[in-house]
Design a protein around this nucleic acid. Structure first.
Length: 439
RNA sequence: GUGGUUGUAGCUCAAUUGGUUAGAGCGCCGGACUGUGGCUCCGGAGGUUGCGGGUUCAAUUCCCAUCAGCCACCCCA
């Protein structure tokens, strides 16, 4: 073996590309149903559009280098800066709300693990110019409908939904000062993955009192709408939950409520989220997150663009592909051949080529043996290629102006006049009748 | 980047306490079968046991290093 793909990069063999194509097709189809338009940008971007957003420590996780013109560049690790630039440049001329999606290949220099490579494709859906909660419901619904389009049900995937405005109000009521909000978010984000003692110690060293820390964990433990509403009762800023509750009502009205779990441990790692946040997981929680997103109203402006409210999500192909394979929802591999044309003798080959090409011109997938082989071998090959039908051309048939059309699955065959082959194949009626005898 | 763990044919796996020429199934190629396929039978190709050192009369087996996969951290755009 000469070599292999770089760590974290993938070779897509035909059956694997079939799954990838299936994922892309489904993504596009569901995005289309929601009126989203597809866009794309360059895979290579100036380094500073990423450091401006996330700070210079992100460079350690980028594929970056100096190009031959002395520019500092990076393979895109995310789509948002590119999206922000494109939207901002034409924001004045675009009708709002803007519904755009893209399927970029993204890169990050990190040690790979299952479900996390150095390269992946990600469906990015963003909605710009609408601050109301129906936009949040719309985007969450889109992500859930992608799952449904793959054949996944509410028993397979769960949408865990929270809202930073709600979290902020509850944490404020718990005694967390504005200065400590970020620390609290970080602790809640890690609550599932870490031992509670460690997080409490971190919060304590950040300056929070034990009573407050206990309340922070109580807030993070809120699950389900009744528990949320109970926690909100008597809160001075109870209106902070209005957008989330409206969005949840909307999801119920769409018939997607069964997929949705209120879960206040969801905050998302990123600092820029301002409202609704959500993540999709497999129900058994054996895999990493399938999808994550939320509202980021100030981000476009912060990136030097327009001041428009916005929200979006990203859904990678790696975890999703693992889940589909696991559930047997990957598409059957191998493109099927419609017709295999077999030549009995070498003298029949030119006639087989002519017929095969006519069939191809008619839009049918058609193959024939590229080397001289006995008829039995050719038919065996037809089976191996998954052909539904075969056409046998031999000297005797040609003398009668016919070919033999075989239905390989039905094990039936019938003579067909040479000039009626296309019609017979198109009708898909091989063996359905005995064929018309001439004379 | 840190720590742990696993690497045998295209795939899934064998190989006695270190012991001769590293095997099997599936897959692939061919024959039985020169105008009729899926089945069956027979045969064949395919391995530097991840790569490189070391110990030993002898290493797939033990040791070291390295690369790759996996797991946990880190991070999660």
């Amino acid at each position: 073996m000469p070599s292999q793909a770089l760590p974290g990069f993938r070779d897509f063999y035909p059956d694997e590309l079939e799954l990838r194509a299936h994922i892309f097709r489904t993504w596009r189809e569901v995005a289309r149903r929601y009126g989203f338009e597809e866009y794309d940008g360059p895979p290579l971007e100036p380094l500073d559009i990423y450091t401006a957003k996330s700070g210079s420590e992100i460079v350690g996780q980028l594929y970056n280098f100096t190009d031959k013109g002395g520019r500092e560049v990076a393979l895109r690790p995310e789509m948002t800066p590119t999206f922000a630039r494109m939207v901002s440049a034409r924001a004045n001329g675009l009708r709002k709300p803007i519904r755009w999606f893209s399927i970029p290949q993204l890169f990050r220099y990190e040690r790979q693990q299952r479900g996390r490579l150095r390269e992946h494709f990600q469906l990015n859906c963003d909605l710009v110019g609408e601050a109301g909660p129906l936009a949040d419901a719309e985007l969450i619904a889109l992500s859930i409908d992608v799952m449904r389009a793959f054949g996944l049900t509410e028993r397979d995937v769960r949408a865990r939904v929270s809202d930073r405005r709600v979290l902020g109000a509850l944490l404020a009521a718990a005694g967390v000062s504005a200065a400590h909000l970020g620390d609290a978010y970080q602790a809640i984000d890690k609550a599932e993955r870490s031992r509670p003692g460690e997080l409490a110690a971190q919060l304590r060293s950040a300056g929070l009192g034990d009573a407050v820390i206990e309340k922070v964990f109580a807030v993070a433990a809120i699950r389900g709408r009744p528990a949320l509403e109970a926690a909100l009762a008597g809160l001075p800023d109870a209106g902070a939950a209005a957008p989330l509750l409206t969005a949840l009502d909307a999801l119920d009205a769409m018939g997607l409520g069964a997929y949705v779990d209120v879960d206040l441990s969801i905050v998302r790692g990123l600092a820029y989220y301002t409202g609704t946040v959500f993540e999709l997981f497999d129900a058994g929680r054996t895999l990493r997150a399938i999808c994550g997103g939320g509202r980021y109203d100030g981000l476009l402006l912060a990136l030097g663009g327009v001041d428009l409210p916005a929200l979006g999500f990203g859904m990678g192909d790696v975890v999703l592909g693992e889940l589909l394979r696991e559930r047997g929802l990957a598409p059957p591999a191998r493109a099927e051949v419609d017709v295999f044309v077999a030549a009995v003798t070498p003298e029949d080959v030119p006639h087989a080529l002519a017929l095969a090409h006519e069939l191809r011109d008619a839009g049918l997938a058609c193959e024939f043996a590229l080397a001289a082989q006995p008829l039995g071998r050719q038919l065996k090959q037809a089976d191996a290629r998954g052909a539904r039908r075969a056409i046998v051309i031999g000297p005797d048939d040609r003398a009668r102006g016919e070919v033999v059309l075989k239905d390989l699955a039905g094990k039936t065959q019938a003579p067909v006049r040479r000039d009626a082959v296309l019609a017979a194949v198109a009708a898909g009626d091989a063996g359905a009748h005995t064929g018309s005898r001439d004379g």
